[in-house]
């Protein structure tokens, strides 16, 4: 089974990338892929608690991630420096994640067969 990393790099709203990254996790997960998700740069905002994009007529993207464990997606890596640069900590996120420094993120991605950047 191939191990695929989905890398969330962008904010949850303002462009389609993070929402599509989420859809790709669901989509690839059903095809027998071992899927890991990494959150870097503005991608850490995807997991921020208390998102309310109702005025954009959109659904809160972060809410879907805790449910992914039901689909056997259980590896979530968040870049420590990206969190710190934005004044965030792991407590600000919708779920428990593995917080890794740059070297840790690099190692996690290097351990995957394929990396898909969103």
């Amino acid at each position: 089974m191939k191990k695929v990393a989905i890398v969330m790099r962008k904010a949850p709203y303002g462009s389609v990338y993070s929402a599509e990254g989420y859809r790709s996790i669901m989509g690839l997960g059903v095809f027998e892929m071992d899927v890991a998700v990494a959150f870097v740069d503005d991608g850490v905002y995807v997991l921020l608690k208390g998102q309310n994009p109702a005025k954009l007529d959109m659904k809160p993207l972060g809410d879907g991630f805790p449910m992914l464990s039901d689909f056997d997606v259980k590896q979530f890596y968040v870049h420590a420096e990206s969190l710190a640069e934005r004044g965030l900590t792991a407590d600000d996120l919708v779920m428990g994640v593995e917080v890794l420094d740059s070297a840790g993120i690099s190692a996690a991605l290097a351990g995957c067969d394929v990396v898909l950047p969103f």
Partner: peptide, 21 residues
Amino acid sequence: SGLGSLAEFITAADRFVTFGD
């Protein structure tokens, strides 16, 4: 076609390259 095709290409490929922003 659906994401199944993407999964198929990933499975078949030795290397996978993304062209995007």
